[in-house]
Design a protein around this nucleic acid. Structure first.
Lengths: 201, 201
DNA sequence: GTCTATACCATGATAGAC
DNA sequence: GTCTATCATGGTATAGAC
């Protein structure tokens, strides 16, 4: 991506530090949600003083947004790296599976579902919106290809298919099924994907 | 239900007042979520002083729990009132449709999805848990009947079917599709139900 | 850029008069 | 049981020294 050949030691150190901060934010966000996560906790997990956080990120919302954007960019990279020889339907399934595996490992759901001040902030964040539109575009193309393959129902608007996949990737059913720990992680993921693509009937 | 023949005027007044409080809570909870809803707002919407709220409900959590329990009891009443002549699959569809229509009208999603202090409180509330278990029991029976009718896939555990329906009733896809207002409310509900029961393929 | 210490403020909850 | 007024807590954000 970048043409910059080398970074000074200080710059590298800064990046490492900020990565650590975003990592901690990611974990806490996944575990407690935006409102219940406090800046004290983030600072404690990173091992720095709270005030130092504010040297890197101007607000709690900005910090959480950074975590969401990083996840979104990882998702984009995954989608772009999909084999173009795969059938479109299989590509879609791979994306959903990837997102569910991340959540299984304690990661964030790809999209924010709750009505929080974070949602507001993200909708005003141009970088986030830009990435989200890129992802929607790519996913939309895959859905349309799957439709012409006859692999996805043509009576559903592409938008509906898209949101349904997004929603399934954030589905609380995963947490409920995992809580009971009656099924293996792979089984849970298989159930979620199967009900999404094949339905209950 | 009750065998109490008459209530004093004061008692009736109390019930009306508390209903109004729970109504307001219900609306704000649906609009803003638990964390973003403040007791000041509830009081303002009811038109009483905040301190008066605390004469009726000991805490914010208890107030929200009252709203959730009322909804759950309404759901139970709806499920119990379903015609026993209907096929089990149609009964399940009716329940989902009913829940989605409530949300369309600005109501609460039936189950709490977020990780909040409210969730904690509810899980320790015996009345809530008791009602939830009743609902799960009834829904589980319907699912098993639908399975033996050959109307629901037998390879899915009943639990998985149950959670999937619950999750769909809280699905953020509804909000996204409504925002675009490209489709009528009935169309949106139809999309959600169809993708749930028939899948995307 | 990191720390300690603190300002500041929103909000859940209470006191006490009527 | 309702009100006005107030408290207490906790959490975001900042000041200022190093």
């Amino acid at each position: 991506m970048s043409t910059e050949p080398k970074l000074s030691f200080k710059q590298q150190q800064l990046i490492v530090r900020e990565n650590a901060i975003v990592d901690a934010t990611n974990n806490l966000l996944a575990k407690k949600g935006f409102e219940m996560m406090t800046m004290d906790e983030v600072a404690a997990e990173v091992g720095i003083a709270k005030a130092s956080l504010y040297k890197h990120f101007p607000s709690k919302e900005a910090l959480a947004a950074a975590a969401m954007i990083r996840l979104l960019e990882n998702t984009l990279a995954f989608v772009r790296g999909l084999s173009s020889e795969q059938a479109a339907l299989d590509q879609l399934k791979s994306v959903l599976q990837w997102a569910l595996e991340i959540r299984m490992k304690g990661g964030l759901p790809t999209l924010p579902t709750e009505n929080t001040s974070l949602r507001e902030t993200l909708l005003n964040n141009t970088r986030y919106i830009s990435r989200l539109m890129d992802l929607n575009e790519l996913m939309g193309q895959m859905i349309e290809r799957a439709k012409s393959d006859g692999a996805i129902r043509k009576d559903l608007p592409t938008e509906v298919v898209l949101f349904t996949i997004y929603a399934r990737s954030c589905d609380p059913t995963l947490d409920y099924l995992r809580m009971g720990d009656q099924y293996s992680e792979d089984q849970v993921i298989e159930f979620l994907m199967s009900t999404c693509f094949n339905g209950l009937q």
